[in-house]
């Protein structure tokens, strides 16, 4: 596997490489412009033909979205997570549909839940799980589920919902302090 990383490094710029906590997992960060070339190289030359998943992580504090492409090679028996960071203010990227047909669904899901658009994916704007969704994409970290549900469905006057155990602890410890 180290050889493979070396070969990759000789062709592409690897921003960060990290071994996973187990042997057969590597995590590579590449530049977003070279992602297609890296994936294509891995698929054609290094037998990473199985795309298990495309995932998105919201790093709101860095103003970035992370896109992770999880690959598996049946020959090498190795997992590879190839990740890129894109700007959170400009959530656009290009599709990998030409390399992996099942990416269509994963990209559609990310488009809907994170609002990242994938240029070249014809079906990305179809509904995946949400219908008539007008709010911010719900999986973004700044989407407040509680506020949304209160606004949309009204406050259900649920006593339990508002309780917080820390509050009760401070209630009874205050009671002792007053004594």
């Amino acid at each position: 596997m180290e050889d493979l990383i070396k070969r990759l490094e000789s062709i592409f710029k690897i921003v960060e490489k990290k071994r996973g906590k187990r042997d057969n997992l590597w995590i590579l960060e590449v530049e977003k412009d070279s992602l297609h070339a890296v994936l294509s190289y891995l698929k054609d030359n290094e037998s990473f033909r199985h795309l298990a998943l495309i995932s998105c992580v919201d790093w709101i504090e860095n103003n970035k979205f992370q896109l992770s492409y999880i690959l598996w090679s049946y020959q090498k028996r190795q997992n590879l997570i190839v990740k890129i960071f894109i700007d959170r203010d400009k959530p656009e990227f290009k599709t990998v549909l030409n390399l992996f047909p099942q990416a269509e669904i994963y990209e559609r899901e990310i488009r809907e839940l994170y609002g990242v658009t994938f240029e070249g994916n014809p079906t990305q704007f179809e509904d995946f799980v949400l219908e008539d969704w007008e709010e911010m994409p719900p999986m973004r970290r700044d989407f407040d589920t509680l506020k949304y549900s209160q606004e949309k469905y009204g406050d259900r006057d649920s006593e339990v919902l508002k309780t917080n155990i820390r509050k009760i602890i401070s209630d009874y410890t205050d009671e002792w302090r007053r004594k």
């Binding site: 996973g20 187990r22 997992l25 298990a52 998943l53 992370q66 999880i70 997570i81």
Partner: peptide
Amino acid sequence: AGETYVKTEATRGEFGYYVV
């Protein structure tokens, strides 16, 4: 901090969890 992808063989195939 870290990330990993683990998988098991469910009855339908590769069931995976990507945890960050």
